[in-house]
Design a protein around this nucleic acid. Structure first.
Length: 289
DNA sequence: CACCAGGCAAGCC
DNA sequence: GGCTTGCATGGT
């Protein structure tokens, strides 16, 4: 891969294992939308970005080399060798098909605080509505970002959300999750839960710390570990993963604990990648339904 | 109109 | 400990 700066754009050539559709439609991130052919736009780490792709060339529009180095290179996980990961995972027919189907997936390294709130909102919800709730959250309580003749909004800070009442928050129509959002914001803003400490904890300790927040249980904490804390062995088991794992590796319905143990043995440290390939494949192909 | 959506907490036993 | 139930809202 090589990097060129042309005017206000960053151009990446020979980007391996990279497909914007796979990356942004596999359900890991909720703030990027398709705006044109092979083009997505959204916000992360307080910065807006439009990004397009043709073949193995990727253009990041109206950004700087500085932002590329400090934000986007890490966000898109560009130091990671996904070819190696896929060949390790493709050890049976199902995983071979899943990794081929989602061959351009990369696990985005997202902001921890944003990931916490986003996956609290994800509980018993569907992806379009999750995106809608998060968008209203940002429009109402985030800061304006002017970018390429459009207005975007940053993800609101813990301080901002901690200052709200349930009534204030009702505009986002989060349903029963509204009180969990406030609980998370208050515990994090007050310092009762220290995100910087969680980042350096062991995975079990980080998980226990996250689960002290109301609305974060086993599955949501696994998603936060995977998407917000870079713990790429984490294998969140939601209804989709449960169904696809039962379809591939069991004949009958299984408790989540059995699925988790099986995945840990089968995928080990690559559990998170396996989970994303399976999730994307199961949803797009409607397998197991 | 039921039923479900990237579950969870609280209340039972 | 494990099992059940209610939960807000919107899509199918």
């Amino acid at each position: 891969m090589d990097i060129k700066v042309e005017k206000n754009n960053i151009i990446l050539h020979n980007v391996p294992d990279f497909d914007l559709t796979h990356i942004f439609e596999c359900g890991q991130a909720f703030r990027f939308d398709k705006v044109d052919t092979n083009t997505y736009a959204g916000v992360a780490f307080g910065k807006a970005l439009t990004v397009s792709q043709s073949d193995d060339s990727v253009i990041l529009y109206n950004t700087s080399y500085e932002d590329y180095k400090t934000v986007w290179h890490s966000f898109f996980d560009l130091d990671n060798d996904y070819s190696k990961i896929k060949s390790s995972l493709a050890c049976d027919d199902y995983m071979q098909e899943a990794t081929a189907f989602g061959n351009g997936i990369r696990i985005l390294r997202q902001d921890l605080w944003e990931t916490i709130i986003s996956f609290i909102i994800s509980a018993s919800n569907n992806v379009p509505r999750i995106k809608g709730i998060i968008e209203r959250l940002c429009q109402n309580f985030g800061d304006e970002i002017k970018y390429m003749n459009n207005t975007y909004y940053s993800f609101p800070t813990p301080q901002k959300l901690a200052s709200l009442t349930l009534e204030d928050l009702s505009v986002i129509r989060a349903g029963f999750r509204d009180k969990y959002i406030l609980d998370a914001a208050k515990k994090i803003y007050s310092g009762e839960i220290l995100l910087d400490d969680i980042k350096s904890m062991s995975t079990p300790d980080a998980k226990n710390a996250l689960m002290r927040i109301n609305g974060i249980g086993n599955k949501v904490s696994d998603c936060i570990l995977l998407f917000g804390l870079g713990r790429q062995d984490s294998f969140p088991v939601d209804v989709w993963i449960k169904r696809i794992m039962e379809y591939c590796y069991f004949d009958t319905e299984q408790p989540i604990s059995v699925i988790s143990e099986y995945a840990e043995k089968k995928f080990g440290v690559l559990g998170g990648y396996a989970q994303q390939y399976l999730f994307f494949w199961a949803r797009e192909k409607k397998i197991g339904i």
